[in-house]
Structures are given as structure tokens and as C-alpha cells.
Write a protein that binds this DNA or RNA. Structure first.
Length: 175
DNA sequence: GCCAACGTTGGC
DNA sequence: GCCAACGTTGGC
């Protein structure tokens, strides 16, 4: 059973549009430097899982699109790059410490689901991402929240399913 | 820009 | 192992 994960990104740094414009609409989700999130990336996130792309640290934080995991956890090589902002001198080939997955954009939500909307919605107000002080950049999303988020975002759950199942090459899955 | 909440570091 | 200090996140 595929799971859905919420992944946060500051759009000034890497936006959903940036992912859509990436080669094959795919990019590594690198730079995560938190052990709990690392454990998700390394151990629990699987190919075929869904990703809800959340824009954080902006005037109106929101889930703006859907992506899927196309490569499971592997060492985040930026940890070994002294020129990277996410360099960690402790990381080695044998002990990479930090991991990443590859994600592929499926489509933008026709109607982004704002943090404000989620907070006000009776079925969504207990989402982990809304909890005060929450700083995890990779979070599992409760299955009972999925269809609500999809409908609010303007994509039917059935369509999401199609997008997740499709091979995701140069086909029409983003149109 | 402010600041609360959190994770990490390091002295002891 | 405790815990104060610090740096970062991220909503507002």
C-alpha cells in the first residue's frame, strides 16, 4: 500500500515549479539534516509513495502539488560536498549519515490547499504539519486526510491514483 | 522582523 | 547523563 508523505520546501529555495521544470520532472530531495526525517527517507519511504509538496516560510503556506517517489532512500552526497550548504564533515562513503529520495512531480493542485484552509477544516485540523512548533520537513500523512486534501486541491482521488500508477515518462500525466 | 519551539552541542 | 546555550525553523 502506497503511503503519502508531506514534504516541506521553501519555494524561494526549491519550489514545486522548480520540480516541474527539472529533467523528467524529477529531482533528489536532498539536504534533509534531521534524524527523524532521515529515518523516514532511509527506511520508510518507498517507490510509488505519494508526496504532497508543501511550501513553507512564505506569507501563505500551502500544499501546492502532488509528486511521487521514484527512487527509494540512498546516500545524500551533498553531505560530502564541502561546497554544499548541507555539508557534514562526518559523512563518509561507508557511513553517509544522511539520505535522500528522488521525487517526480505529477501535477500542481489546481487549487492549492492553504495552511489556513487546513486549520479551519474539521477533518484536517489535527494534521501533524499544523501542530505548533512542528519542524519536521518530511511527515507521514494520515490516510483519512488524503481524499479530503485531494478534493480541496481540485483533483479527484481516482485521478491521483491514475497518476501514481502511470510510469510517468514523457506521457500526458501532467496535463 | 519577531519569537516560540525544537534539535543539537558541549561542559561538567 | 544532565541541562544550559545555541542555531534553526517557520508561522505570524
Amino acid at each position: 500500500m502506497p503511503q503519502f508523505w508531506l514534504m516541506k520546501s521553501e519555494p524561494n529555495c526549491f519550489s514545486f515549479d522548480d520540480l516541474l521544470r527539472s529533467p523528467e520532472r524529477t529531482s533528489p530531495w536532498d539536504g534533509v539534516r534531521n534524524y527523524q526525517a532521515r529515518n523516514f527517507l532511509r527506511d520508510e519511504i518507498h517507490v510509488g509513495d505519494g508526496v504532497l509538496f508543501y511550501h513553507s516560510n512564505v506569507p501563505a503556506p500551502a500544499i501546492v502539488g502532488v509528486a511521487k517517489v521514484v527512487r527509494a532512500g540512498y546516500p545524500d552526497h551533498t553531505a560530502r560536498d564541502p561546497d554544499s550548504d548541507h555539508f557534514d564533515p562526518r559523512a563518509t562513503v561507508d557511513n553517509p549519515i544522511w539520505y535522500m529520495v528522488d521525487v517526480q512531480a505529477l501535477m500542481a493542485f489546481p487549487q492549492p490547499v492553504s495552511r489556513e484552509t487546513m486549520k479551519a477544516h474539521p477533518l484536517l485540523s489535527d494534521m501533524a504539519v499544523l501542530k505548533r512548533g512542528n519542524r519536521l520537513s518530511v511527515l507521514p500523512v494520515d490516510p483519512r486526510h488524503w481524499p479530503v486534501l485531494f478534493e480541496l486541491g481540485g483533483i479527484s482521488p481516482a485521478r491521483i491514483n491514475e497518476l501514481l500508477i502511470s510510469t510517468g515518462g514523457e506521457d500526458d500525466s501532467s496535463r
